[in-house]
Write a protein that binds this DNA or RNA. Structure first.
Lengths: 189, 189
DNA sequence: TCGAGTTGCCTAAAGTCTTTAGGAAACTGC
DNA sequence: GCAGTTTCCTAAAGACTTTAGGCAACTCGA
């Protein structure tokens, strides 16, 4: 029988597409096998387990987001950098909801340390260089930014802002305005 | 054979405990049946489906959180109300991670409209009465608060702040300080 | 280019979970 | 105490995960 030419990378990309189409938690080894017209057991030559597949998709999503964020950040500083960064995050989530959910998949500490999650943290700190914060306030601010970005995008994706006025885009802009103001006037302890 | 005396309410409570012990996505009809020493099919006299079980747990969690938040809010205003509200949210999540995850389970619009989620929104608006915001800024602020609370708690629960200094409690306090300052000096459009 | 070794896909099978159908024992109320 | 209802059961089918073992299809050295 002709070989299908599967590789872990190919399966991961297809898994990411599947996630965007049907949701990250609907990504199964079975569904992926179906997509390649191959028996389920065959995939186990390339993937250790269902968890392995999910982890690979998560790492892919983190990489993609970090790459886009890095592009967006190039040559920007201050509020300009803040909004560019935040927008890539939100835009990615809306274009790729399954991948975004994947990026929130719980990784074990070693995997997380080797992931592009580290670059995210570095970029967040880079943005804060445009504001006048020193440790430990900078760390507090990193956590605030992470919370707002993740929280807003997550609620928006869950449909939380769907059926109320004003529309989400408007709130997003105003939330970023508020965040910028907060960073410029960070209250001391 | 003696009856087990199951009811949807009993099963929901047990499901919530199970969620806190093993995680919300590990809550299955099978595991619940095991816990009551009863065959799986028996539970289908009380629950429509696995989705029904999850929905009930979600509604329970939303109720519990709203009740605690209402208690915490009684007699408080301004920053005092803000932190009390935020703390009940975070404390609940840390004490009941499975239930907290359940509260984020996607409900269909009608169910959501009948859920305690509505009370959460009302309480958030009540807190903002202590600040000087009018529509549509109040709505933007509601969304900001929801994002920060949810985002922070979610990241913290995912272990995002585990292995770095300063500890999460300290950041939480400073984030709430910053949020209070933001609301007091909300930037106009 | 041909044989040896490796790899990739297969069948088979066991264990998990969900859900429905249909039956019998245990309750309920008249 | 009997009729009707409810609750739990057995049985079964369908989906997903994972492992074991087999054979065909590649790869490479001689």
């Amino acid at each position: 029988m002709a070989r299908a030419g599967l590789t872990p990378e190919l399966l991961t990309r297809a898994g990411a597409e599947l996630a965007d189409e049907v949701g990250f938690d609907q990504v199964t080894v079975s569904a992926l096998a179906r997509r390649f017209d191959v028996k389920v057991a065959s995939l186990y030559s390339h993937l250790k387990s269902s968890h392995d597949l999910r982890t690979r998709i998560a790492l892919l999503a983190l990489e993609e987001m970090a790459d886009r964020a890095a592009d967006a950040l190039a040559g920007r500083a201050g509020k300009d950098a803040l909004t560019a960064f935040a927008d890539t995050y939100r835009d990615y989530a809306r274009a790729h909801p399954g991948r975004y959910a994947a990026a929130r998949y719980r990784l074990d500490p070693e995997t997380a340390a080797r992931s592009a999650g580290v670059r995210h943290a570095q970029m967040t700190r880079a943005i804060l260089r445009g504001y006048d914060l020193t440790e430990p306030d900078q760390t507090h601010a990193v956590r605030l930014l992470g919370s707002v970005f993740h929280g807003y995008v997550d609620l928006e994706l869950a449909g939380g802002f769907d059926h109320s006025r004003p529309d989400s885009q408007e709130s997003w802009v105003r939330v970023l305005d508020a965040l910028d103001a907060t960073l410029r006037n960070w209250p001391s302890a």
